[in-house]
Design a protein around this nucleic acid. Structure first.
Lengths: 200, 200
DNA sequence: CTGTCACTAGACTAAACAGTCTAATTGAAT
DNA sequence: ATTCAATTAGACTGTTTAGTCTAGTGACAG
């Protein structure tokens, strides 16, 4: 168990603390205590609390999300099935089901009042929307969905409604209810499904 | 323009400040300054910041939401149309579209870390779910929806997905995109619609 | 007119906050 | 071994925070 470099340890602990408590409610001192890092070290690596958290967003939060969502469709798998699989993976992630999407939580807390956070977080949100949009368009191109499907607005709908469902109070959320509700999202996609033979 | 009683003025300003900035990022001093109320007066009426905000939740936030959502169905109006009307009303509310639902924002910020807030806010969230659920059940009873519709989970889905859609970054939200996306929610209800004659 | 009590007023306190400073220590290069 | 820059260490500072305290004010009942 070799010693983790200070900067990396700080980013890890900052992710955990800010995810659960939010940006404002997380104090620098609390992060330092949990990480067992003295103040001077932190302010050597980061010029302020905000810089620390912005670095955490770019070097921890974003990579975590990139690793989670692939937007790739496996061979012989329909786009619908691909979405279903992603929902299944999400439902199995205890933290996501309990506390919601960390990107979304930060957006809700900070986007209205902090332009810099809003810009950075919106870029990732947009990237995710584009990923979903590309999948939907692939589905249209392959004849799975009707051309009348507006991939832009439907992608945004899928993304934000999943965020909303996930961000229920921890006391009310469960992986089972998430799965049922994600099915309703797929139901709304059904309206654009081009039924072929009775293969399903 | 008669002078507003101190307590009432404090609740009004507290609602505005906490709605936009959140609980933690709103300081008592900021509220007092904006309301032009001295500290002693506030601590005469409320024993702490938390009590002030809890009172605001009960005496401002909840009544505002009660006034907004009726869960009543007009004569000769289908349940589906009734939902559509509510979405239309929501889309016309600038604050809601810009900043999202104030109840939901507070839940995202506090439910994971504060049991008391979680309890109080969850009660209202549950009440709203029950209101929607009752409408759905009325729709089943009147033959508008199929009996296979799970009113409990679908009501939760409607509520949380609307919250998610509304809580997009202010820089990305608009009343038009909200309306389009709320239509997708109604699309998912379509799967349970008992089509009758060609009256629609 | 006077005593009472709800409320106002704002100076004050102690703790928590983000951020600074200088000195000590480390590790790598020479 | 010596040098030197990168890092660690934590005491310190100034500000903001929620909350206290005591003196005063104003309206109203007797």
């Amino acid at each position: 168990m070799k010693k983790q470099p200070t900067r990396e340890k700080l980013l890890d602990i900052t992710f955990e603390e800010v995810y659960i408590n939010g940006y404002t409610a997380t104090s620098v001192d609390a992060i330092l205590k949990k990480a067992s890092v003295p103040k001077g070290s932190m302010y050597h690596h980061f010029k302020s609390k905000k810089e620390l958290v912005l670095a955490m967003v770019k070097e921890r939060l974003f990579p975590k999300m990139d690793a989670f969502f692939s937007y790739e469709i496996k061979e012989n798998e329909s786009i619908t099935q691909s979405f279903r699989n992603t929902f299944l993976v999400v439902s199995k992630n205890r933290l996501l089901v309990t506390y919601g999407c960390p990107l979304y939580r930060l957006m809700v807390e900070l986007s209205a009042t902090d332009k810099e956070f809003d810009t950075v977080l919106s870029i990732k949100a947009n990237e995710m929307k584009e990923g979903i949009k590309a999948m939907l368009e692939q589905g249209i191109a392959l004849g799975e969905f009707d051309k009348s499907l507006n991939s832009e607005t439907f992608a945004t709908y899928m993304l934000t409604s999943v965020w909303g469902i996930l961000s229920l109070s921890p006391s009310l959320s469960s992986s089972k209810t998430f799965l049922i509700q994600s099915q309703y999202i797929l139901d709304s996609l059904e309206a654009y499904l081009l039924k072929k033979d009775g293969s399903l």
